[in-house]
Design a protein around this nucleic acid. Sequence first.
DNA 1: ATGGTCGGGAACCGA
Length: 257
Amino acid sequence: MKVATFNVNGIGARLPALLAWLAEARPDLVALQEIKVADARFPRAELEAQGYHVATHGEPGRNGVALLSRMPLAGVERGLPGGSDDRQARWIEAQVGGLRVVGLYAPNGNPAPGPRFDYKIAWMERCLARARALLDLEAPVILAGDFNVCPTDRDVARPEAMAEDALCRPESRAAFRRLLAQGWTDALRARFPQDEVYTFWDYQDGAWARNWGLRIDHLLLSPAAADRMTDAGVDAAVRGGERPSDHVPVWVVLEDS
DNA sequence: ATGGTCGGGAACCGA
């Protein structure tokens, strides 16, 4: 099965581009981030018409995540545990056959330092706790989303310009490294150990034309899921399309168990 | 050059 993550940066503006990509890429399961609408405004019918089951966890105007799946979505859970007063819609989980999938949108954290950065780091701690519990299932699990972390300088076109950015700060990278140290496989980096691979190019400063990119959208596989990985990639051409998101889809293929 | 680009949703915040 083909599993993808795509930060659409507003489902309202992105529906045509999303539908075109779905028709071309034919993913079986997709985690969407930054849908930026309440559940009632999500274009559920248009996606169901393309053969997808839909589960949303929306928020008016910002954030918001969703899952699309050709197979039924069971056991849907909304919200990252451990934040009783956290109303930001950044986490959704579901069971798809034998696979547990998490769709996540980690906080950006800028400006750093400051309260937004503190929230980012605290959120990553909660993410680490939930990820540990999911790994302990010893089952196929995939964490799919916009982690808002560039893991290393190899994942940044202009590391010197980004050194103080929340996406590249040592604290952010340390949290991501601890996640990997739990036993998750970074699917895209495993497939392309040395290459320059980006998943985001800012709308400003002609970043796409200059290839000033970042790798911040990740697919993390539990050991049982990593054993089934046969391919992974980035659909970078989507960034050059009509009315593009500033992110592009990232995907992995898992062979059937 | 104290700018520049987007989306959501109706002024400005977040990215």
